[in-house]
Amino acid sequence: MTQKKKILVVDDEVMMTRMLKRSLEATGNYEVQELNHGARALEACRTFMPDLVLLDVMMPDMDGGEVAAALSEDSELNAVKIVFLTAIVTKDEVPPTGADISGRTFLAKPVKTADLVACIEAQLNRQAF
């Protein structure tokens, strides 16, 4: 049995991270950690060592773009996969299972659990190569 993949969920809304954790863990394939402050994302990654970070774009202290930039600059963490969750695109611009905008993977809120899982799996599998 393969080890569960580790996912760090970063969003300023507690309700959101709690729901994401519950949904993803219900699949039985992931181990999920919640984080509600973008600024602490780097630190959390160092201790938790996630395979993938699910990142909200708009957060009050440090937004998704900045977190991603910081991760890519860190030699230990630049391999960590990132999926952005954003509220300000429409489903036309971003298909249900995500889209690449400037080399980054975006998912539009609200997202169905199945689409979310599909997108995460695609990213994780890319890492396997």
């Binding site: 809304e13 309700m15 959101m16 729901m19 994401l20 519950r22 949904s23 219900a26 969750l85 509220a87 300000i88 539009a108 809120k109 609200p110 997202v111 169905k112 659990t113 199945a114 979310l116």
Partner: peptide, 15 residues
């Protein structure tokens, strides 16, 4: 403001 709560509901419904 609307899509965040919608996302929570969507995930909850799926759950």
């Amino acid at each position: 403001e609307v899509k965040n709560p919608l996302a929570v509901i969507q995930l909850g419904v799926d759950f």
